[in-house]
Design a protein around this nucleic acid. Structure first.
Lengths: 263, 263
DNA sequence: CAGTGGTCTAGACCACGCT
DNA sequence: GCGTGGTCTAGACCACTGT
């Protein structure tokens, strides 16, 4: 059943045939793949070879495998949309132009308020070279590091590591972890101190998660993370908050932006 | 050297120790990991177990392995920044407010013009349900599918699948693949037909590449792709171009956005 | 209990990179 | 030629899932 004349290894040929059956829809999301024993018989290969094919599809994020049950075509998770317009909404709330923030950490604030939870861990530290560069300040300046893990329906949805200048927030309610989640997010928190954000810059990249990230975000193998680095700017484009890493599960999140071209 | 009392498998323990040596900087980018034979001796494990540890680090994107040479800590590629402001620049060029487009497909147009190349393949087809939804038109309407592979220094940097309404571009220079890359991108091409874009929407997500994508983008294992879906909007927020998948190598690209909060 | 995947072993042969 | 990784085999024992 595998072609020994092919220049491609047997495990790759098996994987390719399964992949085609998945892409074609013959094996829809949730459906069960042949068992290892089945593949061994069907393709007349050893167990290691059959497992190699399975492994290949796992690392591509096509299937998930459960011990004692089998391998299954991965279900497509409903993706939550993270709208960049939430920042405009946060700013409008901070400026008291609207009564309630529309979102919190990108979630629908009014509809989902009861469903979410945030774990906070604050500490005073000194700016790393990277954080200092993002702020535009000398390294080792005192900063407040806020580590937030955001859950919805008890499922972790984002890991935020955010920094505020210690000189600005020391002794204020903003430095108190019990006040998280702050209505209007970082923009709302800064506004409570009289600091009005005028712009937000985001840089988006992606990579495979560290084992710790895969664990806390409960990621299947073959699922990358989206990583946003955010700078919240006040007048003169001076950075007043820096989120050096917002880590999101890539199988559950889409990030939306809109750029107006009118001058 | 591995702890048989641990509940974690041997290959995982070996991987964890190597991972720590990489994260700690003891094994910096580019440096060589112990050979399989070395791991077998050092940890007193079988070859399969040693290879399992290597495989784990590969799928995390931490190392690359070359036959006959060994495994090496992955070099961090210099990431190219894809600025969303390029759309404003394209629009300014299209409106003849500036003499030259600043970028082309996100690359610096003036500095890099000689270094890039684009492979094009156009075809007339009917809108898939997804493309139709992005356009806001009935499915099966005639569209021009433009498939562009963009290279810089002969290295593929993005795969674009973009759609234009056939009714709009039929018989025009825009429908001629030889005119790619169009100065000012899709916005410039539309402007030549008198259609002025007023906004661009982008949705960003991430996943592992298909084998074909990994091949054309020359991606190492453990490197995801960033996928952008773009809608170019004219007045009344009517979509005039749809890029249903801009696929970018996540180890070489960062996407930058800026949101102004002033009302 | 049977069926499933998870881990591990010892051993073989092949292909690539370099000296 | 030697050291490196790539593929493959046969076989063993363990752990989880469900009847």
């Amino acid at each position: 059943m595998t072609d020994p004349m092919s220049d491609r290894p047997a495990y790759n040929q098996v994987a390719e045939q399964l992949r085609q059956r998945i892409y074609s829809g013959e094996l829809p999301p949730g459906s069960k793949l042949p068992s290892e024993a089945g593949l061994i018989k069907q393709y007349n290969v050893s167990r290691v070879t059959a497992r190699g094919a399975i492994k290949e599809l796992q690392t591509e994020g096509l299937i998930v495998t459960r011990q004692g049950k089998g391998s299954f075509v991965r279900d497509r998770e409903p993706t939550r949309r993270l709208h960049a317009e939430r920042y405009q909404s946060d700013a409008a709330y901070a400026a008291k132009r609207i009564a309630e923030p529309a979102t919190s950490y990108g979630f629908d604030y009014l509809a989902d308020r009861e469903r979410y939870r945030v774990d906070t861990s604050f500490r005073e530290t000194r700016a790393s070279p990277r954080v200092a560069e993002l702020f535009g300040i000398p390294a080792r300046e005192a900063v407040l590091e806020r580590r937030l893990i955001f859950y919805i329906d008890d499922r972790p949805e984002q890991i935020i590591t955010s920094y505020l200048l210690h000189a600005v927030v020391r002794g204020t309610p903003v430095a108190d972890p019990d006040n998280e989640p702050w209505p209007g997010g970082a923009i709302g928190a800064l506004a409570s101190l009289g600091i009005m954000a005028v712009a937000v810059e985001e840089s988006v990249r992606s990579r495979m998660p560290t084992p710790e990230e895969a664990d806390t975000l409960r990621l299947a193998t073959g699922v990358p993370v989206l990583v946003i680095t955010r700078r919240t700017l006040a007048e003169d484009n001076r950075a007043v908050e820096v989120a050096a890493d917002i880590v999101l599960p890539a199988d559950r999140v889409t990030i939306d932006y809109r750029m107006d071209l009118s001058e």
